[in-house]
Amino acid sequence: MMRIILFLATNLAVILVASITLRLLGVEPYLNANGLNMNALLIFCFVFGMGGSMISLFISKWIAKRSTGTQVIEQPRNATEKWLLDTVAELSRDAGIKTPEVGIFPAQQSNAFATGWKKDDALVAVSAGLLNRMKPEEVRAVLAHEIGHVANGDMVTLALIQGVLNTFVMFFARIVAHLVDNFLRSRDDGGGLGFLGYFAVVIVAEIVFGLIASIIVAWFSRFREYRADAAGAKWAGSAAMIGALGRLKAETEMPDQMPDTLTAFAITTGQTRKVMERLFASHPPLDDRIRALKESSYR
Rank of each mutant, 00 (worst) to 15 (best):
N34Q: 15
A33T: 15
L84V: 14
L179K: 13
A205H: 09
D260N: 15
E206N: 09
L211F: 02
M50S: 07
S19M: 12
I215D: 02
L193G: 11
K294L: 08
P29F: 08
L293P: 01
A177E: 04
P259D: 10
G96S: 06
I4R: 01
A218N: 06
T99E: 07
G49L: 05
R247F: 01
S92T: 10
A64K: 07
N132W: 03
L293A: 04
V176W: 00
G26C: 11
G192T: 02
G129V: 11
G116V: 11
S19T: 15
N34A: 15
Q271F: 00
F168W: 02
S60Q: 08
V14K: 06
V156F: 11
D121M: 07
G148N: 13
W83N: 14
R291W: 06
L286W: 07
R174P: 02
L6V: 15
G103S: 10
E90D: 15
T10A: 09
I55K: 03
A228M: 09
L211E: 01
L41Q: 09
R133W: 00
A89Q: 12
K274F: 00
L293M: 09
P106T: 09
E206Q: 14
A33F: 06
V27Q: 13
R66A: 02
Q108V: 10
G103W: 06
G197Y: 09
K65Y: 04
A236R: 13
V27G: 05
L25R: 14
P76G: 04
M2Y: 03
N11Q: 12
G232H: 10
E225P: 09
D94I: 15
K135S: 10
F199R: 14
S296K: 03
A95Q: 06
H145W: 08
T70K: 10
V180G: 05
R224G: 03
A200P: 04
R77Q: 14
A281V: 11
G243P: 02
P100F: 08
F195L: 05
I55N: 03
R133I: 04
I212Y: 04
L184V: 06
V169W: 01
S67T: 14
V217W: 08
G153L: 12
Q162P: 01
D287S: 15
I15W: 05
A244E: 07
I203K: 09
R222V: 03
D86G: 12
M276G: 02
S56L: 01
F223P: 00
N152G: 09
L165G: 00
G194P: 00
I175A: 01
F113T: 11
G52N: 03
A95H: 05
L196R: 10
A141M: 07
A230F: 08
I59A: 03
G148S: 11
G163Q: 04
E225I: 09
I55V: 15
F113Q: 08
A9D: 04
I242G: 00
V204T: 13
L91Q: 13
N152F: 11
Q108S: 13
